[in-house]
Design a protein around this nucleic acid. Structure first.
Lengths: 216, 216
DNA sequence: CCGGATCCGGGTTGATACTG
DNA sequence: CAGTATCAACCCGGATCCGG
């Protein structure tokens, strides 16, 4: 991107991450951790392959990502965020918090990937009862599954299907998210097609926490 | 901008404000309040006039800004932010906080407008002594002047030269900002060309406050 | 002066095909 | 799997022009 050439923090930030697709690439790397080129392509439906290659080069030059060339035993190269890149989490959360209310009116054929729920879940879920033994919940809302583990006062959200979940929640993305974030009751969720199996009390263990800071 | 067509809060937000110049236009309107077309042009060095006109149309359609057509007595039409547009302040603060550390290495001929200091000053300054009578400080750092008024526990930062300031601080933008935000002592600032006239104690009345929330 | 509209050259994006 | 190559369409930047 052409620089704005303005002595202004906002303009300087946009010089680095204002390009189309750049923040979405950061999103993917925040969710996945070190990822292969093909993993990124899967999580960025619509991006041309050459554009992803270009962006990764620019982002590497800007110090946002680094490539881990594989050791001799043939493996695939990985891309990961630098500390500077991970520092974009507050930016992404701010844009997402601002943009999320408009998701209701999005068109029917919009793409969705289950792992996109990871950031909102990490942001809003808290362990309701740190002293009890940990619980594990499986979330199914699209093309894949997530693992939500609560224990010791923290909640870990990861991509992938857990081995022995205490409960499983499945349904349409918006309905599942609304349920987990406390925007819909279990009865309302049921009417919207959300199904919960296993120990329902495990769901009560993770509670939404919208008051993390004063700026929200 | 083409939509990403992704069911994701980040993508939805970028669909609306990911276009080039859009967030900088919001910056100007946050600083200036209702503004004329020409005022915006002055605060956005480098933007082509047609692009500003296009963006304002798109932003009006997206509900970010609204035009106040002048009443019969001939006046110039004004553009102002809607509530939805003002809600972008946390986004802009997050990007600016992330981008500001790179301002040191910016090229010499970057543009600067004094009023760009308004948002960082509003964000970081606090009234150190709410019970004392209010003070007013004039800030000169480029093409114009700002008024910083502290009193009753709050700090008001506005564009324009105050009538009777208790103190005046003038110098290069980076040095003045570093001084006001407490990143440089008065002695260091002096070496960097910052000059303070009037009552220096008025400067001690406004103090930097970086701990406003836990996300910074 | 204010608020644009118009035109044009060049760069970027999007879509797809292809290759080591 | 990890890109490169190609090409059309679009968008941006720079300039000029024009009606109030």
């Amino acid at each position: 991107m052409r620089s704005y050439r303005q002595y202004c923090g906002l303009a300087a930030g946009l010089d680095a991450v204002g390009d189309r697709w750049t923040l979405l690439i950061v999103r993917e790397l925040l969710i996945l951790g070190p990822a292969r080129y093909t993993d990124l392509l899967r999580g960025l439906p619509g991006i041309p392959t050459n554009l992803l290659a270009n962006r990764l080069r620019e982002m590497e030059a800007a110090g946002l990502v680094e490539r881990q060339e594989p050791a001799p035993p043939v493996a695939t190269p990985l891309v990961s965020l630098t500390e500077r890149g991970r520092a974009l989490l507050p930016v992404i959360e701010a844009v997402a918090a601002w943009g999320a209310p408009t998701l209701g009116g999005i068109d029917r054929d919009a793409e969705f990937r289950t792992h996109w729920l990871v950031l909102p879940l990490r942001r809003h879920l808290r362990d309701a009862d740190p002293d009890k033994p940990p619980v594990c919940i499986e979330v199914q809302a699209g093309d894949g599954a997530l693992s939500v583990e609560a224990g010791g006062g923290t909640v870990h959200v990861q991509v992938g299907r857990p081995d022995a979940p205490d409960a499983v929640i499945a349904g349409a993305p918006d309905a599942v998210l609304a349920t987990l974030l406390g925007h819909a009751t279990l009865n309302e969720a049921r009417k919207r097609g959300v199904r919960v199996t296993g120990n329902r009390r495990a769901l009560a263990r993770i509670i939404p926490d919208d008051g993390r800071d004063s700026t929200s």
